[in-house]
Design a protein around this nucleic acid. Structure first.
Lengths: 99, 99
DNA sequence: AAAATAGTTCAATTGTATTTAAACTAATGA
DNA sequence: TCATTAGTTTAAATACAATTGAACTATTTT
């Protein structure tokens, strides 16, 4: 698994985005990413088994909220901020400000 | 049942709001309300049995997204726009613009 | 008072999400 | 090469959400 699926901007769907955001754990992940710009999966300070975290990362990635870059053994996560801003102006700002 | 429960602005919780919005049917209800300002439950143009609609109205009301005013036999629904704007500035605008 | 209207609640069913441990993969390090 | 690291996938369990029809409540109309 060298490349991961990321929906492109036009494919982004508001209902899926909001659904992905509407979960306390995923919102916490987004909060962490908004403060750190990039994180590895294991640096999320969330007390859950890695398989559960992996599940939430997948939901976030497939909804288009985050980008996952593979580098060696690690995955670096980041919010797809610019693309989200283009597609849903103001949305991520108001979300992140209010987590 | 003369008065319905509506959480007050301070009680509003982003995760619950986003969770309520992260459903295609409820997002459609919000879209309709954004165009009509106020609707009765039966005027939502959504093809679902009334009990299912009632469920979605309840989720929207209890999350704080909509206000329900009882008048005679009918319930008039409206988005709690001003309060939501105060609590989560910009959020509803960016959601409504992009439904 | 009885019927109609507008919607809610209930209970059952179905469907979807979350969580977990264990097995797995791919890359790095000894 | 073998072990370790970082994370994914799988399969099963549990939990939660959505949907439905039927019974119900409150209000209005006849």
């Amino acid at each position: 698994m060298r490349e991961l699926f990321h929906p492109n901007v036009e494919q982004l769907n508001l209902s899926s985005i909001l659904n992905a955001l509407g979960d306390p754990i995923r919102l916490q992940i987004i909060k962490n990413l908004s403060l750190q710009r990039e994180t590895t999966c294991s640096c999320c300070n969330i007390d859950l088994p890695k398989s559960a975290l992996s599940h939430h990362f997948k939901v976030l990635r497939e909804s288009g909220l985050i980008h996952v870059r593979i580098e060696g053994k690690q995955r670096f996560l980041s919010i797809r901020y610019e693309e989200l801003e283009k597609r849903f102006p103001g949305l991520m700002n108001s979300v992140i400000k209010n987590i």
